[in-house]
Simulated scan of single mutants.
Amino acid sequence: MKKIVIIALMLNTSVFAQVKKGTEVPNFNLDLVNNSPKYLTMSELKDKVVWLEFWATWCGPCISAMPHLVDLQQKYKDKLQVIAISNEPEKRIAQFLKAKPFDLAFAIDTADLLRKYFPYQLIPHSVLISADGKLINVTSPEKITSQVLDSILNGQEVHLEEKKDNLSTDYIKDYFYADDHVKHKILWQPPIKGAGGMMFSHLDKPAFSGRRLTFINASLTSIFSRAFGDVPYSRAIDSLGKLGDETFCLDIIVPKSDQLENTLRQELSKKYRVNAKMVKQQREVSVLSIIDQEKFAKVKRNTDGNRTYFARHGAIDQQGVTLAAFAEFLESFGSLRRLVIDETANTEKLDLKFSFQPEDKNSLLQILDEMGLGLKQETRQINFLMLKNE
Results as ranks from 00 to 15, higher is better:
Q259E: 13
S286L: 14
V279H: 01
K271P: 03
R265Y: 06
V279M: 12
N275K: 13
V274L: 04
Q266W: 03
Q266R: 02
T263A: 13
N262Y: 11
Y272L: 01
R283K: 15
M278L: 11
R273C: 11
Q259N: 04
N262L: 14
R265Q: 15
Q259A: 08
Q266N: 07
N306A: 12
T303F: 04
H313A: 15
L264A: 07
K280S: 08
F310P: 03
E284F: 11
G305K: 00
I290C: 00
V274H: 13
S286G: 12
V299Q: 06
Q319M: 08
T303K: 10
L288Y: 03
L260F: 10
V274G: 09
I316G: 14
D292T: 00
D317F: 11
R273M: 13
N262D: 13
F310S: 13
E261N: 09
R301G: 08
S286P: 04
Q319P: 11
Y309V: 09
Q318F: 06
L288T: 08
H313R: 15
V287W: 02
T308L: 10
V285R: 03
V274Q: 12
M278G: 01
D258M: 04
V285F: 02
K300D: 02
N306V: 14
E267R: 04
R273Q: 13
A315T: 09
N302C: 04
I291C: 14
T308W: 00
V279Q: 08
N302L: 05
L260M: 05
Q259W: 02
E284S: 15
Q259L: 07
I316W: 08
Q266L: 14
V299E: 02
L268H: 05
D292W: 03
I316E: 07
I291P: 01
L288C: 11
R307I: 02
G314F: 00
R283G: 11
S286I: 10
H313F: 15
Q282I: 13
R301C: 04
R301W: 06
G305M: 00
N306Q: 06
K270E: 08
I316P: 15
S289K: 15
K300G: 00
Q281L: 14
K295M: 00
D292Y: 02
Q281C: 05
N275F: 06
Y309Q: 07
E261G: 05
G314S: 01
K270T: 05
K280Y: 08
G305Q: 01
K271C: 00
L264G: 05
N275E: 10
D304M: 03
S269D: 02
Y309G: 00
Q266V: 05
L288Q: 11
Q319W: 02
R312Q: 13
Q281W: 09
E284T: 12
V285S: 07
S286D: 14
L264P: 08
V285D: 03
E267Y: 02
N262R: 14
R265S: 12
R283F: 10
R301P: 06
L264T: 02
D292R: 03
A311E: 07
E284P: 10
N275D: 07
K280R: 14
R283A: 15
D304L: 02
K300H: 01
Q282R: 14
V279G: 01
F296Y: 06
S286V: 05
G314M: 04
T263E: 09
F310L: 09
M278H: 06
I316D: 10
R273N: 14
L260T: 09
S286F: 13
Q266K: 06
D304F: 09
